[in-house]
Structures are given as C-alpha cells and as structure tokens.
Computed example of a mutant assay.
Amino acid sequence: MNTTPEAYPIGTPGTPWGDAERSEWLSRQARQRSYESEVLSKIEQLRPRFDVEEYGLLEYGADKYPLMAIRSRDWNDDLPVVLVTGGVHGYETSGVHGALQFVDQHAAEYADRVNLLVAPCVSPWGYEHIQRWNAQAIDPNRSFYENSPAQESAALMRLVAPVRDRVLMHIDLHETTDTDESEFRPALAARDGKPFTPGGIPDGFYLVDDSENPQPEFQQAVIAAVEQVTHIAPADADGNLIGSPAVARGVIQYPLKKLGLCASVTNAPYKTTTEVYPDSPRATPEQCNAAQAAAVCAAIDYALAHR
C-alpha cells in the first residue's frame, strides 16, 4: 500500500479550502487516459444492438464530455426497469468497464424480461484524470440530492426521473483502491479542514446495502455469485469493513439517501453498491470487470425472482 503523506500539500491544516485551494488542486490534475477512445468507442460499438443516447454534456473549460446512456432496444413499459450505473467515481475503472462488459456479454439474456438503463461512466472527467472528485473538487457520490452542486449527479438524476418509481433494482458499480487511503481520504480531510485518520483497505469484494431498507438476502445472492469470480473481503479484527460494521459476510450498510449516494436516486426495492478491490495481488483487471458483470446478473436474477 502507498505511504500516506503526513500533511496534504494543498491548504492550511484545520482550514477548509476556498477558491484558491480548489484552483491549486485543479492545476495539479492531469489527463491520464482517454474517455473518447476507451469508453465512448465501446459504447458506439453497442449501438447496433441497443439504443444509445446522450443525456447531458459536461463542460470544464475547453473540455466537453458527452454523458451517454444505453437502453434496451425494445423498451416495453409493461416491464420493470433495471438501472446500472458505473464510474460515479471516475477513477474506479472496473465500475465503467464492468458495466460495459455486462451490456456487451449479458444484457441480451434479459431482453424480454426487463428494461435496462445503463449509465456506464457518470463522471468522465474523473475517468480521464483518475480522480474521485469532479473538476470542482466535488464528490459526485455525495451529491445526489435536489439542486446538486455536481453536474454529473444532476444529469443522472434528470435521466432517471421519468422512471425512478418504476425501477425494480439499481446496482451502482464501484471500487475501493489503495489510493483511497494514500490520496483521496487525505485530500478530503484537507479540503474540509479536518484531521486525517488513517484506516485500512479491505482485501476483496464487498457490498453496501441501504440501512433504511436493508435487503440481506438480496445482498448475499450477489456475494455468492461474485465469489465464483473473485474473493470476498473479510472483516477486520474489529468486525468492520472500511470502518463500518459488517452486517453479514461482505456487506456493510449506509443510509444511502442521507449521504447523497448514487444508489439512492430511485425508489427501487433492491439497491446495492459494489466495491471491487483492484489492487489485490489475487485479482486481475479482467477479474474485476467480470466480478462487476457477475454482480449485475445476480442482482437482476434475484430481483426478478422476488418481485
């Protein structure tokens, strides 16, 4: 694991960032990969089999990022809706490519049973810059609420609004990486003027359930499927995963709506957030993508069987 810096290089400890600090942070960010060639090109390849739409356009300076969604070709209002989101934190690679792999390899299996709505890369600026935040140092995955300060979150909410009460299942695909501890948590503490408390990174896959509407059997069905692909994270010595009590093997709970998390954007009875661990020596990028795709399939299968 990377060494955590003693003091974050931007700002004054104990003082929240202002515009100057946010500008300094942004000036340090560099494009490290291409949304167009790695994501948009793959979405285009799906166009012959699915309906593809642009649901928004991000503009950060001279950079423009079309926000793309993939829908079932033969949308049928009599069928339940399944929502798959990825790349809410753009740096979490398998969230994006796992969603695309699901569409490419598995979506056809559900053609006559559900309407699929997939937003594979909610935060493309974050994808290109390998960042958790957007260009304004805002975390999209804490910004899913009315009058959201994050345009990524606001655009997704507009996309989902017409079907939010008809969604049967929503799965939001994430990763927990070593850089969460070495970069992103220290940056968060510095931005908010709070002390950074070192923690740990779970070694393996886990899920986040909704503490306001827990669905333990649903979560365990997903865990069982993913375990065929990659290992499940064990709880630490205190019985926690990422600082939260493990309520079951590989499962923690958050109040999704209270925290403004993406998984709260619909009224789906079945919701979960996946967390893949890509830095494990026991997992390859291919396994991480496959684990995300397996989680989506298992989640849809359970939801359909328990409608």
Rank of each mutant, 00 (worst) to 15 (best):
D178M: 11
E152W: 06
L83Y: 01
A135C: 03
T177E: 06
I130K: 08
G204P: 12
R132P: 07
H129Q: 01
A111W: 00
V103D: 02
S94K: 09
L207V: 10
V122D: 03
F102K: 04
H174S: 13
R166G: 05
G98W: 05
Q131M: 10
C121R: 06
H89K: 15
N141G: 03
G95D: 07
Q151Y: 02
V118F: 03
V103E: 06
H170E: 04
G98F: 05
T177V: 11
A189H: 10
H97D: 15
L83F: 02
A187M: 15
T85Y: 08
L156R: 03
L83N: 01
P140Q: 11
A189W: 11
D172E: 06
Y91E: 14
G87A: 12
G199K: 08
N147Q: 14
M157L: 12
A99P: 07
T179Q: 12
H89F: 14
L173D: 01
G126S: 04
A137E: 06
A150N: 05
V84D: 00
A137I: 06
W125V: 05
G86Y: 09
I130E: 01
A111S: 14
V122G: 05
V118Q: 01
Y145G: 05
N147C: 10
V103Y: 08
P195N: 12
E152D: 14
A108R: 07
E146R: 14
G193W: 14
V163A: 01
W125P: 01
E183V: 14
P124N: 02
S143A: 10
F144Y: 15
S123W: 09
S182C: 14
I171F: 06
C121P: 09
I130N: 00
Q131F: 02
E175M: 08
P195V: 06
V103L: 13
M169R: 07
Y145K: 09
V88C: 14
L159D: 00
R113F: 01
G98R: 08
P186D: 14
A189P: 11
V118L: 02
A119R: 00
P140T: 13
D192R: 15
S143E: 02
I130F: 00
T177N: 11
G95W: 13
Y91M: 15
V96C: 11
D165I: 00
I201R: 09
L207E: 03
E146M: 04
P140L: 08
P140A: 11
Y110I: 06
G204L: 09
A190D: 10
F196Y: 15
V96K: 07
E183S: 11
E152I: 10
E109I: 07
F102W: 11
Q151I: 05
P149S: 12
G95Q: 11
G98A: 08
R132F: 08
V96D: 06
V88L: 13
G126P: 02
Y127Q: 00
H170V: 07
Y206G: 05
E92A: 12
L173G: 03
D104S: 15
E181Q: 15
W133G: 01
D192K: 12
E128W: 01
V160E: 00
F184C: 07
A150R: 03
L159Y: 00
P162W: 09
G95C: 13
E152G: 08
I171H: 01
T197K: 14
T85P: 00
H97N: 13
R158M: 07
L156Q: 02
Y110C: 03
V118T: 09
Q131P: 01
E152M: 07
G90A: 09
S123N: 15
